[in-house]
């Protein structure tokens, strides 16, 4: 019932965006398309046909992107460099590695911070400062420095993902680990419970909703981090490399296909975390 009710508004928004996109293609591609439209004899029909069918458009029409994705996903073997699946896989592996490291780092920092006022005061400013540095500025340095000591490929990219995604996890988990109310904490005190018992039996379970909210943010920016990490390296694989190659050769359709693939991957990852959250909620007896 619920799905059905939401079906029409969702489709309407999608359709509106598509219409807007197709309309916008005409003036935005005018620079490249003008002479070709004239050559084809002008007129409304030619304007549409040319604007929506350019080889190297300023902005490709949606069906061009879909075609490119179809071709590079289903018509090429996935282990070939020209396959989009290959690039998705490369980016996904470094995203996941960075995400796991970032999660461990973020949770570890949060646990340290809530147990020590000193650490809270001394670490927090650095954690916040770390996120004010534009990642595009330091990504090449990280890649370069690590490359010079022999780390190339997966690890440097993952470190950039980790650098970006530990932050929401640390902040969210500090909030989550301190979320138990005073009575629940006093109860542990009356039992003379150790700090680690309080952590495992009270603080972590209470922090679960906060953790999952942070994980959703973190996994999306871990993907961004991996893509950014692929830009300055001259990497042969990955969605970032694919976008960069596309921009070198004016392959806007290829860039857009990679962009759409990236957002599809991000959405899937966030959705997967949502699924894990639901499973955990059921196991923790949440009110349905």
């Amino acid at each position: 019932m619920k799905t059905k009710r939401h079906f029409i508004p969702v489709l309407t928004i999608c359709a509106a965006i598509l219409v807007l996109w197709y309309v916008a293609c005409i003036p935005m591609n005018a620079v490249v398309a003008e002479t070709k439209i004239t050559a084809a004899g002008g007129g409304f029909a030619n304007t549409l046909a040319v604007s929506w069918g350019l080889d190297r458009p300023v902005i490709p029409a949606p069906h061009q992107i879909v075609t490119e994705i179809w071709n590079s996903v289903f018509l090429i073997a996935p282990w070939k460099v020209k396959s989009l699946v290959f690039h998705i896989w490369v980016t996904l592996t470094s995203t996941m590695l960075g995400f796991v490291m970032g999660t461990l780092l973020g949770v570890g920092l949060a646990v340290a911070i809530i147990h020590s006022k000193l650490l809270n005061k001394s670490l927090m400013p650095w954690i916040i400062a770390s996120q004010t540095i534009p990642i595009l500025a330091i990504a090449p340095m990280i890649i370069g420095v690590l490359g010079s000591v022999g780390f190339t490929g997966l690890v440097p990219k993952s470190l950039i993902s980790m650098y970006l995604c530990f932050f929401p996890i640390a902040i969210g988990m500090v909030k989550g680990l301190t979320s138990p109310d005073p009575m629940q904490l006093d109860l542990m005190r009356t039992y003379n419970a150790s700090a680690s018992q309080v952590l495992w039996k009270l603080r972590f379970p209470a922090a679960m909703p906060f953790l999952f909210t942070s994980l959703k943010v973190a996994i999306a920016i871990a993907l961004t981090g991996a893509i950014v990490g692929e830009l300055p390296t001259g990497a042969q694989g990955g969605l970032g490399a694919r976008m960069l190659a596309g921009s070198y050769y004016g392959q806007t359709i290829q860039i857009w296909a990679a962009l759409v693939a990236a957002s599809f991957v991000a959405a899937s990852l966030v959705y997967a975390i949502g699924g894990m959250e639901r499973v955990v909620n059921v196991r923790m007896g949440a009110r349905p």
Binding site: Q184, T190, K201
Partner: peptide
């Protein structure tokens, strides 16, 4: 020395634990 049991103004049960797991909490801790 865990000399007393304390009952608060509110039940202060841990919502992710079943009734038996809540009652068993002090036993686990101790």
């Amino acid at each position: 020395a865990r000399s007393y049991g304390y009952v608060f103004q509110a039940p202060a049960l841990y919502p992710w634990r079943t009734v038996e797991a809540n009652v068993g909490l002090p036993l686990e801790i101790m």
